[in-house]
Design a protein around this nucleic acid. Sequence first.
DNA 1: ACCTGAACACCGTTCAAGT
DNA 2: ACCTGAACACCGTTCAAGT
Lengths: 236, 236
Amino acid sequence: MGENRSRRARADRSGPGLSRADVVEAALRFVDVHGLEALSMRTLAKEMGVYPNALHWHVGTKSELVAAVAARVLEDIVLPPQRDMPWDAWVAEVARLCRRAMHQHPNLSPVIGSQLGVTASSLPFVERMVDVLERAGFSAEDLIHAYNTVTGFILGWVTLELSSGPATEDEDWKKGFAKQLRSVNPNVYPALTRNMKLLENNAFMTRWDSGCERPMDLSFEAALEVQILGLRAKLT
Amino acid sequence: MGENRSRRARADRSGPGLSRADVVEAALRFVDVHGLEALSMRTLAKEMGVYPNALHWHVGTKSELVAAVAARVLEDIVLPPQRDMPWDAWVAEVARLCRRAMHQHPNLSPVIGSQLGVTASSLPFVERMVDVLERAGFSAEDLIHAYNTVTGFILGWVTLELSSGPATEDEDWKKGFAKQLRSVNPNVYPALTRNMKLLENNAFMTRWDSGCERPMDLSFEAALEVQILGLRAKLT
DNA sequence: ACCTGAACACCGTTCAAGT
DNA sequence: ACCTGAACACCGTTCAAGT
């Protein structure tokens, strides 16, 4: 999904002082370390040893920078060759690669889920996914729906997996949440009570750790299998 | 999913001057009208005719307010009774209800996708979804995975559907994107070129309008059917 | 308890000016 | 073209003080 960015440090003074890719790269690293809400044009500029306007000149507005950083995450993915591979194995493999890339930059997941549905620069992904699904037997409207099914599943599901609780400083809400969950009325929440041991900290809306600290590997694999089985059923 | 908030205007002076629910409600309406990025404690306070600190006193920090507003969106949903209904019909119906609720407040979709995976206050949803899936035949780990599959799909997929492009002011990037898309090299993007008419503005990463202006109804129904078919296949 | 009023330390963006 | 330096109009949050 695009060539790797050059890894050279910003120290060497060859070429122009700053490039757009440099700024995006620095922003990515900054967000990885300090979190998305800590990112500001001023602090990033300070860390890069320039004035805020230098950044604006290269990347435009802040939200444009963030969008560029989000798109940058998926560029690390190198898609496997789709020939000599069953369509379902290829889809599953690509799903795992996307998830891995997103897990490598968990602080960016909010902006990936909420901006990447509408974007350019991922055309190689589209091209090959469409090609594979077409060869699987989908065509016309069904092809578009199949594409949207798996693409929406991957990006959307992992976004939710990596979602975090309220960005409050203290971690006490976790203990409070756990206590509240365990002390629900068994008469009004019988199914929840029955499966409490399985649910707590393992399922959406009943967990307190995000998918960053507590990856939902097995659930993802199961959900992925559901996609494949469902698509296969639609083909017949 | 919880009782409706009282609809009384903030004008009447009965009881205390302000309540937490009032602030959340006002914030929800504000975001619906002006967008999420326009929300600030100061402007919301001004619109409510109070000082910023009055808001802080009731809802704490801004990110806590936003989390509360996000959770508030799903509280409008009234779950259908799950008895006298096949499990798959119930799941499909609830999926459509969740989607409808999210579409009613599209400006909140980023924060729903990125925060609602870890939250309380949705226990009625969990209870009944788990109950239905259990009656469908899932148990133990498979039950949790089935729950995570459909919950992650609904919230994640619709988040992606409602995702919008860069929050830039001018709408020219849309025309530029469309032109760039239509003028790709057919030799390097054959599948994309073959299906251009179907893809453009209809599929993730090849559309310029968000799911707010351009709902992906058919693709959602197709994806939902894939979930059902896949889950059904796993049951046997 | 609930809110005012002022203050602190930020922030994104713009604009003229330099080179 | 690329960046400095200063300025403008904000922002979230805190703190003392009122009632």
